[in-house]
Amino acid sequence: MLEYIISKYNFWIYVILMMIGLYAMMGKRNFVKKLIGMNIFQSAIILFFVSTGVKAGATVPILSGHGHGHGHELIEVAKYINPLPHVLMLTAIVVSIATTGVALAVLILIYRRYNTLEEDEILKIRKDTGV
C-alpha cells in the first residue's frame, strides 16, 4: 500500500494542491485570497491533465529528420510525448486568465461600493443597511 502511494507521488501532490485551492475558495474571508485559491485550483487541474501525456523515454513532440520531399515515412509514436493534452490545456490557461481579469474587475467594483474586501464585513453592512 505504501509502495503504491509513493510510486504515484505526483498525483498525490496534484490532489493536495487542488485541495489547498478549494480550501482557499471556501475558507478564506478576503476576496483576493479567494481568487488566488481559484488560480491555484485551476493550475493544479491543468497540471494533472498535462501530466497524463508524459511517456517514459519520449521526447518533445516536434518531428525531426522528416524533412521535405519524402513525407511518407512511418513515425514512431512511442518516441514522442502525446501533444493532445498540451493543446487542450493551452486553451484552459488563456480562459483562466480571462476569468481572473473579470473577477478582478468585479472586485474593484465591490470595493468602490462597500469600501472593504472582507466577506464578513460586507455581509454585516448588507444586513445593517437592509440592501
Binding site: I46, G53, V60, H86, L90, I93
Partner: peptide, 13 residues
C-alpha cells in the same frame, strides 16, 4: 514534462 508550448504560455500569460 516536455510540454514546452504550455510552459511558454504559462510564463507569458
Amino acid at each position: 514534462m516536455g510540454a514546452v508550448d504550455v510552459a511558454f504560455t504559462e510564463a507569458a500569460v
